[in-house]
Amino acid sequence: MAAEVATQQLPAHKKKKEVALLKTWKRLIRNKMAIVGLTIIALQLFMALAAPIIVGVDPNKQNLELSELPIGTEGHVLGTDNYGRDIWSRIVYGARISLLVGIGAVSLGLVGGVILGLLSGYYRRLDGIIMRFVDLMFAFPGILLAMLIIAILGTSLVNVVIAISIWSIPTCARIVRGSVLSIKKQEYIMAMKSLGASDLRIMFKHVLPNCAAPIIVFATMRMATAILSTASLSFLGLGAQPPTPEWGAMIAAGQEYMWTSPHMIVVPGIAIMLVVFAFNVVGDALRDALDQGMSLDK
């Protein structure tokens, strides 16, 4: 019975969703800032995917004779670093790393956060325990939590991803829980429940899709935080293993050369700023677009 009700609803539901998506997209690209952000993200994506095609030079190829060349040198558009490595090629390959770290950390964090959030929003009995646990994680300064995790697991990019993802669980759990609480009370969920649909089915098929909007916004903004945090951890010497061309690690290494070759920190600093900026802007615009969408649908 329950299944029948659900399948009958599905086509209409789906169509409505597609329309809503299209509307959201249209609203999004009407926002000038969002276009700037999307362009930067698209560029980063392109750099990440096509790195070997864009640059012919190995980002780790050293040439101690040609070290610390300034920006604009022939053959090295963005100059070279203290080992004579080409900074442009390191930036391009670094785009790949920052994107991977961001996506990895955010998706891992989402899985954890969504599960905790769903459980705690859906089952009142679990709510207290899970939320206390979330409070506990909140009370840790994020960077410290990451430092402890890396102290246990060891210094590597993969462990940075794990540390950052754990750090984003509490926020995500709270957001999901909030949406679940409000959706749970809506009539059709109540109706399905009384028709005997299983909890799991309701949670994943009906509640979760309805939390999609805040989750997408959170994920986009979180990409920004994740990229920044990776840089901070690298600055503390807890990130990528050398000679990985990670942007944060490039800044950390360039610090000592700041006075003689400032481009070594300026270039990766700007790269990080642009990308983080882009994700923030798009996240912001998405929220506006989705918010309006919600209110129109009502």
Binding site: M33, A224, L228, A231, S232, F235, G248, I251, Q255, M258, W259, P262, I265, G269, I272, M273, L274, V276, F277, N280, V281, D284
Partner: peptide
């Protein structure tokens, strides 16, 4: 101010610190 605000959260603060010192 929106652009600057968004820029503000996007700056790695150890980087900003080093540049302010400089």
């Amino acid at each position: 101010s929106t652009v600057i605000a968004l820029g503000g959260i996007s700056i790695p603060n150890f980087w900003l610190g080093a540049i302010l010192i400089l």
